[in-house]
């Protein structure tokens, strides 16, 4: 058994190279049972490569992948029995109908025959199941790929950019479906994306990858806490410069944005109150004092950019 007994999926020190080019460095994923793990990163950061490693499609140069507490390299076939996956564009046979595409994988996995109709209904393709897959729109292909991934009622779902090519309605439906799968069916889902807005609405946990390194991993509240550390106070007054000179202790770290605007890192509620009192005591007008929270998107950009600079 691997030491991470509460992790349904864990990687230990994964390194991967394409030829001589290093792609992943020391990636340690930790996905708890019953979570929706949003795997975030800009394009080319190594998301798809990581997803392929999790399925045993690629072999790591070093490190190991554990699913359900067992080493994937040793028990690949047995472990994949409980995994459903959708990797990038769904693999569809264009000469077969939607239903036949589902049937091909159903037979391959030895799943009961009634599941075909069930998963087609689940993704809303029952009425189009008789049409050849080559006539399907991008969104329908994505849904059919998801239906195939859900066939065996897997405990773990690995979805690589599942909203690719979906319209806004389709994205909302996908989100609802993922939420339902977790809440009603107890699935654990790893979903990769390069869009934070998409992930924050559905994920319980987040991992951020940048240039092949995991730069953040934790629960969604953890990520939100990370951004409160980066919150700032915006202060509006008459003469920003003189305010800063009058209150060097409180405003020493402040930046002058405009002649009448200052901003400074947010410290605490007490600090904010003291600042307001000190300003009025010093005879300066206080037109506005507000707390600015960076959005998750800012935090994500900060995480990925900070690391890009570090690497250079």
């Amino acid at each position: 058994m691997n030491p991470d007994t509460n992790a349904l999926l864990a990687t230990h020190g994964i390194h991967f190279n394409f030829g001589k080019r290093p792609i992943l460095h020391d990636v340690n994923l930790h996905v708890e049972a019953g979570s929706i793990y949003g795997f975030l990163g800009p394009n080319g950061a190594g998301k798809s490569t990581t997803m392929r490693l999790l399925l045993g499609l690629l072999r790591p140069a070093s490190g190991s992948v554990h699913l359900f507490g067992h080493n994937l390299a040793r028990h690949r076939v047995a472990l994949l029995n409980r995994v459903g996956a959708l990797i990038e564009n769904p693999s569809l046979y264009d000469h077969l109908t939607g239903r036949e595409n589902v049937e091909a994988t159903r037979k391959l996995r030895g799943v009961a025959a009634h599941r075909t109709a069930e998963v087609l209904a689940l993704v809303g393709l029952t009425d189009n199941a008789h049409r050849p897959a080559r006539e399907y729109s991008l969104g329908m292909r994505q849904r059919l790929g998801l239906a195939i991934a859900l066939l065996s009622d897997p405990d773990l779902l690995l979805l690589d950019e599942p909203t690719n090519g979906l319209d806004p309605n389709g994205i909302i439906e996908m989100r609802e479906l993922l939420r339902r799968l977790r809440q009603e069916h107890g699935k654990t889902i790893v979903v990769s994306s390069h869009l934070i807005n998409e992930i924050e609405k559905v994920a319980t946990h987040v991992g951020v990858i940048q240039q092949g390194r995991l730069v953040f991993q934790g629960s969604l509240p953890d990520l939100q806490r990370l951004q409160t550390g980066r919150a700032r106070l915006v202060l509006e007054t008459e003469h920003a410069d003189s305010c800063r000179n009058l209150l060097p202790r409180l405003l020493g770290g402040a930046t002058v944005l405009a002649p009448g605007t200052l901003w400074l890192p947010w410290v605490s509620r007490e600090h904010t109150a003291e600042l307001a009192a000190a300003l009025t005591a010093a005879g300066q007008p206080l037109y506005g004092l507000r707390l600015e929270q960076p959005s998750l998107e800012d935090t994500f950009l900060h995480l990925t950019e900070a690391h890009a600079e570090l690497a250079q």
Partner: peptide
């Protein structure tokens, strides 16, 4: 080519068959 054309090798090898 049936598998190649459908980019299905990645799908096939992610199924529980050796």
């Amino acid at each position: 080519n049936i598998e190649t054309k459908a980019t299905a090798w990645k799908h096939l090898y992610a199924q529980p068959v050796g």
